[in-house]
Simulated assay, not measured.
Amino acid sequence: MPKPIRDGAGPRHVAIIMDGNGRWAQRRGRPRLFGHHAGAKRVREIVEACPDIGVKYLTIFAFSTENWRRTQSEVAGLMSLFRRYITKEARALREENVRVRFIGDRVRLDDKLVTLMDELELMTADCTGVNLTIAINYGGRDEVARATKRLAEDVAAGKLDPASVNEETLPKYLDTCVLPDPDLVIRTSGEARISNFLLWQSAYAEYEFVDTLWPDFGAGEFGKLVGAYGTRDRRYGGVKA
C-alpha cells in the first residue's frame, strides 16, 4: 500500500497513458488481447489506491482515435472488453463511491457500448469519492477540433462575442470542462511521448515516463510517483522571490 501524501503536497489530478499491454502479452507468448484483459484488472488496484494518497481525479487513456488502425480482431476484442468491464465493474464502482465519466467522440462507438457508458455515468453521478474519467475514442487534437466547432457555432448563433474569446473560453467546450487540469501525467512501458492525450489540459502538467508495462504497474509504484510529485518545484513560468 502506498504511503499517504501530506495535504496539498501531492497531485489532485493524475492522468495515465496505460501503455504496454500488447508487449506484456507477447513476451509471455500470448495474444495481445490477453494483455489488455490483464491491464483492465490493474485499473481497479490503481483506482482503489487513490483515496489513501490524496488523488481525487484519475483519468485513464483506454482507446485513442488512432487505435482504430489496429487489426480488426484487436479492435473488436477491445470493444468487447470495454463492454464487459463496464458491466462487471459498475456495481463495485458505485459501492466504492467512484464517480465515472467518459470522454472522447462517441459517434463511432457501437450503440450497446454507448448505452452502457451512459448508464454507468448516471449510476455514479452522485458519488463523491474518486472521479474516474475514462478516455475512449479520444484524441487531443480531435477534442480541440470538436470544441472549436462548437465554439464557432455559438459565435455564429450570436451566443458568444468573438471579442470575448480568450484562453479561458475554449476549455468550457472541451470534453473535460468539469474537470481540473491534470497535475501529473504518467506513461508506462518506456515510451516517452504523449500520444495526443490531453494536449490542452496538460500544458503545465508534470510528466513521468516509466519502463514498467501497464499490467505490471501496481499501487506501490503509483504511490512512489505521486509522492515524488511533491518534491518538484512548480513555478508556472515564474521565479521564486
Rank of each mutant, 00 (worst) to 15 (best):
E45T: 09
D183I: 05
D52N: 13
K172M: 09
A125Y: 13
T71C: 05
Y138A: 14
G140A: 09
E153R: 15
L93A: 00
S195A: 15
E66F: 01
G54P: 08
L116M: 15
I186F: 06
A152L: 15
V114K: 10
F209A: 12
A241Q: 14
R6G: 08
K172Y: 01
M1H: 09
R150Q: 14
D19H: 00
A163Y: 11
D142L: 02
P162T: 04
G35T: 01
R234W: 06
T59R: 02
V55Q: 07
E48C: 07
D211N: 14
R108L: 15
L113W: 09
T133P: 10
F63V: 02
G158A: 10
R232P: 06
A62T: 12
Y138T: 11
L122R: 14
R83G: 12
E96T: 07
C177Y: 11
E119C: 07
S189F: 03
T87H: 05
E168G: 15
A163M: 13
E191H: 12
D183Q: 06
G77N: 08
Y204F: 14
G29W: 00
K240Q: 00
E45R: 10
F61A: 12
N137R: 04
K56M: 05
F61E: 07
M117C: 13
G158P: 06
T231M: 10
R99H: 09
I86Q: 03
T87Y: 02
R232S: 13
G39D: 02
R28E: 09
S164E: 14
D7P: 07
T133I: 14
E66N: 11
S195R: 11
Y236T: 02
R44S: 12
M1R: 12
G237N: 03
A163G: 15
S189D: 06
P171A: 05
A76I: 04
A147K: 08
L33F: 11
G129W: 04
R99Q: 13
A147L: 09
P31D: 12
A145P: 05
E89W: 00
I17G: 04
R187L: 07
R27Y: 06
N67C: 05
W214I: 02
I46T: 15
T87E: 12
G218P: 01
G223Y: 00
V226H: 02
E95C: 03
R108I: 05
P11M: 10
R83M: 13
P2M: 14
E89C: 00
D142C: 01
A241V: 13
Y207I: 13
K149A: 15
H36S: 06
A205L: 10
I136K: 00
R83N: 09
Y236E: 10
V55G: 08
S202R: 04
K149P: 01
R234P: 02
T71P: 10
G29D: 03
T169W: 04
L78T: 02
A145F: 08
I17S: 08
A205P: 03
G220N: 13
P215E: 08
T133N: 09
H13S: 12
D7R: 14
V114P: 04
D111T: 12
A152T: 14
I60A: 15
G129S: 14
A135I: 12
G140V: 07
T128P: 01
N67H: 03
L113M: 08
Y57V: 10
Y207T: 09
L58R: 06
L33A: 08
